[in-house]
């Protein structure tokens, strides 16, 4: 899921200063799970902004705030409240904020910072294992991504900063990705895969803005 974190309240206030009537939008998917833009957080924000003298015209939680059609439909349903609002504060990832700004004409303000595509380690703990490079090489690296798990993204083994305990110089609490890859390949009897030089990554597969349109194929599963 997309991991988000609420901005400092003082920064949110700064961003909405000058607007009086605020509508708040949360997200029922990722932002709910990271407790940054679910029902509870939207309610808290509403309460907080009221204490700061703002008038809250209404609020909503969109099931997927990044779904453009769904977002448009939701705002149509809340049209009378939106009409009374000077701005919308969106408690969703950057994709969600932009789905909103696509759907209304009043200013849309982000309340969250979008961090990474995260794995849930346990409740409230998220870590990044994939950086969506468009060029997956996990089969060569024993199922551990060096482009993500190594702070330098090295593809051919560790740098000189791996310490005697196999920890990373950038963050001593983090195991060196290449020690993990080595151990994983060794366990699976695939150490020979490490001996080949992996060529530079093809960043043409990761240009932004990304775009993908599914095409119907004859004989496909759907």
């Amino acid at each position: 899921m997309i991991i988000t974190k609420q901005k400092m309240l003082s920064d949110i206030i700064k961003a909405i200063t000058g607007y009086k009537n605020i509508f708040i939008t949360g997200c029922g998917s990722c932002a709910t799970l990271c407790k940054s833009g679910g029902e509870e957080e939207v309610a808290q924000m509403e309460k907080y902004l009221k204490t700061k003298g703002f008038n809250i015209t209404g609020s909503t939680i969109i099931d997927e705030a990044c779904h453009v059609l769904l977002t448009k439909r939701t705002y149509r349903e809340h049209l009378s409240k939106i009409k009374k609002s000077d701005a919308i504060l969106v408690m969703a990832c950057g994709a969600g904020v932009q789905a909103s700004s696509n759907s209304v004409e009043i200013p849309v303000i982000p309340a969250l910072d979008t961090l990474f595509l995260g794995n849930t380690i346990r409740f409230g703990v998220f870590e990044q294992y994939c950086s969506m490079c468009g060029d997956c090489l996990l089969e060569i690296t024993g199922g551990v991504c060096p482009a993500t798990r190594c702070p330098k993204g090295l593809l051919n083994g560790p740098c000189g900063g791996v310490d005697d305990d196999g920890m990373c110089e950038v963050d001593r609490t983090l195991k060196c990705a290449w020690v993990e890859i080595y151990e994983s390949l060794k366990k699976r009897g695939h150490l020979d895969r490490m001996k080949k030089i992996i060529p530079p990554k093809d960043y043409s597969k990761n240009r932004h803005p990304g775009s993908l349109t599914l095409k119907k194929r004859k004989g496909s599963a759907k």
């Binding site: 090295l154 051919n156 083994g157 740098c159 030089i197 992996i198 060529p199 530079p200």
Partner: peptide, 10 residues
């Protein structure tokens, strides 16, 4: 880190 040191050598 577009490339690593081994790729640089190559």
């Amino acid at each position: 880190f577009d490339i690593d040191s081994i790729q640089l050598i190559s």
